[in-house]
Design a protein around this nucleic acid. Structure first.
Length: 336
DNA sequence: CCCCCCCC
């Protein structure tokens, strides 16, 4: 075995046969088919002592050989692997690195002792909640976020059937950094393990969550974080970022800009009769009701016309109307 | 050398 120094993960620019890296396996995940069957192949995130990270793929043909040597938390030396740049349009990249590794049947993995510079157990690249709106729906890179879980008692696991007839598990919750809130939707296996761990999570309230490698999307015009295959979460994790957030939380001004979220009540389903009986303490509360529309009163001016295309208000509608903003033709309303 | 949808 050669005794030459280990290569820096950022120096690995193209395939070369003699790369030698010393890394900690910090995360591991498997892709799945649309119906949730896990692949034999898997992925890992590797980190060196400089906290450089790189994603590595372990193809099915070398899983039997390598999986037990690549346990999360272990430090190892790895030689003989392929290097591949991400394709220019490739989305859902897990590490801020132009390249990723592909292990193969010649790859050698050896447990090594950690001497000198210690490789941390984890490393995150957090985005502020306020920045998320600006990067939503891009997802060339996956995103790390930290926040305080709100209204923990309202969080539940739901069974859904989507419009294609597939079954899904879903859990929704909101996290805050004190000044803004972000919605999170976890799906399927991650939704299940999240709700389970949240129930087991002992004492320390509120629960601080780190979500790593998540997608930043939108739902109902709001930023919504959701899980990709690589997404992992940590509750009240032993990490300085969690300690810092808990310190901020102890400050009485922490929620100053966040009162609405803190006091937000669960939306209730009420009958019209119950809504009529609500008292002053329900002012501006949100409720849901089921009702049948019997007729629409078109006298008075409680309503206005909008173009069904551009949603701009239309001043008058008599006969067919061409929207002056987008030229859409809006037919005359039919009278009964 | 496998996936990254899915809730209105």
């Amino acid at each position: 075995m050669s005794s030459r120094k280990y290569d820096d993960l950022l120096s690995i620019k193209q395939a070369r046969s003699d790369w030698k890296i010393k890394v900690r396996v910090i995360r591991k995940w498997r892709g799945a088919t649309k119906i949730g069957e896990l692949f034999k192949s898997f992925n890992i995130m590797l980190m060196d002592y400089k906290e450089n990270k790189i994603q590595a793929f372990v193809p099915a043909k070398c899983v039997d050989d390598l999986e037990n040597k690549l346990k999360v938390g272990s430090v190892c030396s790895i030689t003989n692997f392929d290097v591949q740049p991400y394709k220019s349009q490739e989305k859902f990249r897990c590490a801020q690195n132009e390249n990723h590794l592909i292990l193969n049947i010649n790859t050698k993995v050896r447990d090594v002792e950690e001497k000198g510079n210690t490789i941390p157990q984890e490393s995150f690249d957090f985005y502020d909640h306020a920045e998320l709106d600006g990067i939503k729906n891009v997802n060339v890179n996956l995103t790390d976020v930290i926040g305080i879980i709100q209204n923990r008692e309202d969080i539940s696991l739901k069974d859904l059937v989507n419009r294609l007839g597939n079954k899904n598990l879903q859990t929704k919750f909101t996290i805050t950094d004190g000044s803004s809130c972000v919605n999170v939707t976890f799906w399927d296996a991650l939704a299940k393990s999240f709700t389970q761990q949240l129930q087991l999570q002992p004492a320390q309230e509120p629960v601080i969550i780190i979500i790593t490698c998540c997608k930043v999307g939108s739902w109902n015009d709001e930023v919504d974080l959701s899980n990709a295959a690589a997404t992992t979460f940590y509750l009240n994790h032993q990490h300085h970022s969690v300690a810092e957030m808990r310190k901020l939380l102890a400050n009485p001004n922490f929620y100053k800009h966040n009162q609405s979220a803190k006091t937000k009540k669960k939306v209730q389903l009420l009958t019209i009769g119950e809504i009529k009986k609500l008292q002053n303490d329900s002012t501006e509360s949100e409720v849901i009701t089921h009702a049948n529309i019997r007729y629409v009163d078109d006298k008075g001016n409680w309503y206005y016309h909008i173009c069904t295309g551009c949603k701009e208000e239309i001043q008058s509608i008599r006969g067919d109307f061409i929207c002056s903003k987008c030229n859409r033709r809006i037919p005359q309303l039919e009278k009964k």
